[in-house]
Amino acid sequence: MSQEKKVVIDLQNIRRDFIVGEETVRALRGVSFKIYEGEFVTIMGKSGSGKSTLLNTLGCLDTPTSGEYYLDGVSVRKMSKNERAILRNRKIGFVFQSYNLLAKTTAIENVELPLMYNTKYNSKQRREAAIQALQMVGLGNRLEHKSNQMSGGQMQRVAIARALVNNPAVILADEATGNLDTRTSFEILVLFQKLWKDGKTIIFVTHNPDIAQYSQRNIFLADGKVKDDTVNNHILSAEEGLAALPKNEED
């Protein structure tokens, strides 16, 4: 089914070498895959498998030593630092493990952040887009809450809203549930599944194999290579998983 769909990410034989002293560390040794619009992909691997390097490459924070990377049809490899910054601003939404919200700053201001670096938005449009994104993640009633007044789950929702606000080609989540308890993790997964059903393209990088069951496609990375690339035919519903959890009084 995905053959007719638009290719959002196209990696062609990506290699990334780091020179540490005398040695060359080959973090990525020829990674190739395509991700299509509307896919929910988990990228898994142990630490040292090249996961982080791949994430940096996908996020246009880093450029490969060799190979081609097309993001939404644009070749990234030869881009300058500034061009990549603009590309990140328009096409990528990051969600980090530790949320990375601005301190003492309201939810709405945090979500507005990417649009602050986009001159196409004026302050009114920026605010509207931020409110819309916060409503999408279920925080429509907490617009003016400051980052230090929120729970971990709420903070991660704000971070997801921030990743959504620029309507990116792909959302890159880096261990997005890593700092959260089981229940909140499920809630975040519910949110990701909802966004996926709304047609968003999501790449979830994790070392936790459980999460793979909730996504559509799983890519396993080992020693800087793609070891396995499978389609998950039995996608679990995070909502059901959440319902199955024992009731928590405090929640």
Partner: peptide, 16 residues
């Protein structure tokens, strides 16, 4: 530093 990293990852250029 972390804030700067975040700003850069959401698209702030060095000049910004």
């Amino acid at each position: 530093t972390k804030e700067i990293g975040l700003r850069m990852s959401v698209g702030a250029r060095g000049l910004d």
